[in-house]
Design a protein around this nucleic acid. Sequence first.
DNA 1: TTACTTATGGTGCAGAGTATTCCATAGCGA
DNA 2: TCGCTATGGAATACTCTGCACCATAAGTAA
Lengths: 192, 192
Amino acid sequence: MQALTDPRAVRSRKALHDAMLSLLDQKPFADITIRELVAEAGIGYNTFFRHHPSKDALLDEIAAEQISALLEIAVPILDAQDLHAASTALFSYIDEHRIMWTTLITGGAAGRIREEFIKLVRLTTAPRITTQEKVPIDCAMLLIVSGTIELIDWWLRSETPLPPEQVADIFDLVVASPIMTANGYGGLKRGA
Amino acid sequence: MQALTDPRAVRSRKALHDAMLSLLDQKPFADITIRELVAEAGIGYNTFFRHHPSKDALLDEIAAEQISALLEIAVPILDAQDLHAASTALFSYIDEHRIMWTTLITGGAAGRIREEFIKLVRLTTAPRITTQEKVPIDCAMLLIVSGTIELIDWWLRSETPLPPEQVADIFDLVVASPIMTANGYGGLKRGA
DNA sequence: TTACTTATGGTGCAGAGTATTCCATAGCGA
DNA sequence: TCGCTATGGAATACTCTGCACCATAAGTAA
């Protein structure tokens, strides 16, 4: 791999990220070709492969970046034992970057997002979870992640979107709380 | 399209279905080519296109078939207002056809399954739903379907799978009941 | 059985896309 | 300034899709 500090490399990588997000806004991921990407980014065809082994790898990188930013917002608040504040912060953050998340999720990248989400959740939150009751921990994690993405997807697609607080309410009510209380996290403060 | 009663056509279509399931057992859907399909099915390359416009269309057909069979089991029981019996029947049915569902869902076809699932759920159950409370009906449907598939996926992947009744318990507890009770379906008999 | 209909198999072909190579060039850092 | 390296451009080999044409064999109705 090349030096990630070289301004030329940084420029190329950023151009590719922007181009991918721009094209995702126009067509689904599967229909985007590498030639289109490099044309949109204004870089050479070969240069793409010098940075990413495949089209999927580029998307994975973008997805991981964004999910990481999302979790950096939500996890610390969740650690403070306030589920409702954490979920409200999460949906507010997405609302602030609505266009980016819409193109990313509805553009056919939901599957990748989900994979990266699970990977990061497993790294950041799994170690601090010890109890285990009715629902196996792996299962619980998968259900929460997929429920979260599904809810975000629906929210971003809806014509007259609910305010973030209200989506956070739904999230707490039917996604997070059922799983967390089933596994003995009933002590969390929950939103009304 | 050709006559669906002609024994030759029936034979070709069945061969393609079997070939797809067989190949899904060996590699993810994205890596399967039409040439591999026709080779596995023992039919000519052109014959594929005489039956299906694309590789995806074939998978959609298979997915719709299987989901339809699944719903024919679960929906009547759900109509009888017994959620736990319905979900137990659903997971038992999948358990009886474990190999097929494993190859279908873990073979990278989960997305298609999900789409067909939503389509069929919308057709079969949506018309009979009238009430609407905390969670919008579209949102509730998406959450239940994706939760169901996610749970099935986890269950099929797990090394020491729980018995169907136990998965049905988890399903009732953290997927179905939270959404149904939130929307005023509290009157349903629920499993202990 | 005979004759008609139709699904099939084989081949070839055009087009698109991927992934790699080679080489000259321009940008970057010391 | 000078060496290093990312880049652009072209050429190439390869795979896959989707459709053409045509002879053949399977199926159907008389």
